[in-house]
Design a binder for these strands. Structure first.
Length: 492
RNA sequence: AGCGGUAUCGUCUAGUGGUUAGGACGGGAGAUUCUCAUUCUCCAAACAGGGGUUCAAUUCCCCUUACCGCCGCCA
């Protein structure tokens, strides 16, 4: 087999969508597994809808995910340029060839005429197929139309191409993931390959680019299946080698609709912004359709690549379940090297004055708070009570707890005794153990409630990080002030 | 409407012509812990329906149903 060359060809009309990211990932995995090349091509033929901002976002997102490309707009390559808008001089040449050989013809139909055809089709409850009205226009007729100021679009002659290369009207191809797929080409209308403004359409540009870039396998979403028949015909008409195709099931939102903004994050950069790790994103998205042969779901991108077989991909759609992604994200957070984690978290702590803490205290704080995080951004709330000096916001549940006699009893003793304690983690650990042990013995207070009183007063909450370390970080003075404050307010 | 695709726990999936149909997330119960979380143990949960073929069908074939996609001078 000749060299494996696959590509991802996003259109920069938005930030890189998670679905596109999955398609990119599968292409990347396929390339890696087969020692092939992974190519990035930007499809920006529609100048209206595309922007540089989105191109940058696509680059950044792909890189963040670790999907590095071998050839592309920025790194170049043998078959560039890799941005369609820079390839506009390439497309007309092949159009001319198609025209000369009768595989394409000029169409002078106006939007109104076309609209009328479509309306009639829907009135008769029939599928719309272009009437081929312009197929056999004479030179005189064309000249006349041109004189009227009409600019022709170029249409591909489907039936002609089909007859030239196939015995029947049925076109078949062997899909890498779905197996044999077929379609009656009589149902495909002669489609436009060059717009009247001289720019190529998607179906045409894709073929030229894939052929010229020597793409061997086209792996993409199943929404492209029907385009595939058109594209195969163009490949054949132009005498290009037809690549192999593989169509992936779609990713759906939990309500089975298209994954859109209202379901939460959809762009890779949104996920990252919200505190998802790209490692988790890659791992999770790979599991949508693909499954590891050893049953071990947590895997690096390299491990997945080694185990990847395109024909074993599930060909059905899959639902994007945020729960599992979150679980996976929390797992990856725990796996992160501490230094890396501490740095990443700073981005979500900008509302606090980190200078209140020494570096050691900051590190300790992260050590005891990172475990329950599902998103990096959860850290913002998780460490709130470490800041604010001698004051802390008390939430409802903590307030209720503070008002119990037990809590007041505990706090009074705590404030009294702790005054004399040496405020180190080691010592606090020891002292508190004795402290709650005594309460248990003398008054039957469960350790849980003894600690809750202190926790509620000092952190304003009932759940949070390790109490000993928390006290040590907040410091003796502030901890005791907070504890005293809790006693006073409860007594008023 | 037409054409194409898909169908195993709620979700992602494994799997087989004969299995107690397996795992993961989520859910439930319990243990551990100063709380939350973690960790551990256990539990509930699926072969869409109907016909065939066969000694035997979740597995192969057909039909139905449901869902998804496509029918642009968008990509």
């Amino acid at each position: 087999m000749s060299e494996v060359r696959v590509r991802i060809a996003p259109s920069p009309s938005g930030n890189l969508h998670i679905g596109t990211a999955r398609t990119a990932l599968f292409n990347y995995l396929f390339a890696k597994k087969n020692n092939g090349k992974f190519i990035l091509r930007i499809e920006d033929t529609d100048a209206e809808r595309t922007s540089q901002e989105y191109v940058d976002n696509i680059f950044d997102s792909l890189k963040a995910l670790g999907l590095n490309w071998d050839e592309g707009p920025d790194v170049g390559g043998e078959y560039g340029p890799y941005t369609q808008s820079q390839r506009f001089d390439i497309y007309p040449k092949y159009i001319q060839k198609l025209l000369d050989e009768g595989f394409a013809y000029e169409c002078f139909c106006t939007p109104e005429e076309l609209e009328a055809e479509k309306e009639e089709a829907s009135r008769n409850k029939k599928a719309y197929v272009y009437s081929k009205k312009c197929e056999n226009l004479t030179e005189e007729e064309k000249a006349k139309l041109r004189a009227e100021g009409r600019k022709p679009a170029i249409r591909f002659n489907v039936a002609k191409a089909q007859k030239a290369f196939h015995d029947s009207s049925i076109l078949e191809f062997d899909d890498l993931v779905k197996g044999k797929l077929h379609m009656d080409t009589n149902l495909i209308g002669d489609f436009v390959i060059m717009k009247s403004n001289g720019t190529p359409t998607y179906n045409y540009a894709v073929v030229i680019d894939d052929a010229l870039m020597k793409i061997s396998h086209v792996i993409r979403g199943e929404d492209h299946i029907s385009n595939t028949y058109k594209q195969i015909l163009i490949f054949e008409a132009l005498g290009f080698e037809v690549p192999r195709f593989g169509h992936l099931g779609m990713i759906l939102a939990p309500d089975r609709s298209k994954l859109s903004k209202r379901h939460g994050a959809t762009a890779v950069s949104d996920f990252v912004e919200q505190g998802y790790l790209t490692e988790a994103l890659v791992n999770f998205v790979a599991l949508l359709g693909w499954s590891p042969s050893d049953g071990q779901e947590i895997k690096t991108i390299d491990e997945i690549a080694a185990d990847f077989r395109i024909n074993e991909i599930s060909s059905s759609n899959s639902i994007f379940e945020y729960d599992k992604l979150k679980w996976m994200n929390s797992h990856y957070i725990k796996m992160l090297p501490k230094e890396v984690l501490r740095e990443k978290l700073k981005k979500y702590l900008t509302k606090y004055d980190l200078s209140e803490l020494t570096e050691e205290q900051y590190n300790r704080m992260i050590d005891i708070t990172y475990e329950p995080l599902t998103l990096l951004s959860d850290i913002t709330d998780a460490v709130a009570y470490f800041f604010g000096g001698d004051k802390v916001e008390i939430d409802e549940k903590a307030q209720a707890e503070l008002e119990t006699d037990l809590s007041q009893d505990v706090l009074k003793s705590f404030v009294e005794q702790a005054e004399g304690w040496e405020w180190t983690e080691e010592n606090l650990h020891e002292k508190l153990e004795v402290f709650r042990g005594k309460f248990k013995e003398e008054k039957g207070y469960k350790p849980k409630f003894t600690m809750w009183a202190i926790r509620a007063a000092v952190t304003g909450r009932l759940c949070g990080a390790d109490m000993v370390v928390t006290l040590a970080i907040i410091g003796k003075e502030n901890s005791l002030k907070r504890a005293k404050a809790a006693i006073k307010t409860a007594m008023v």
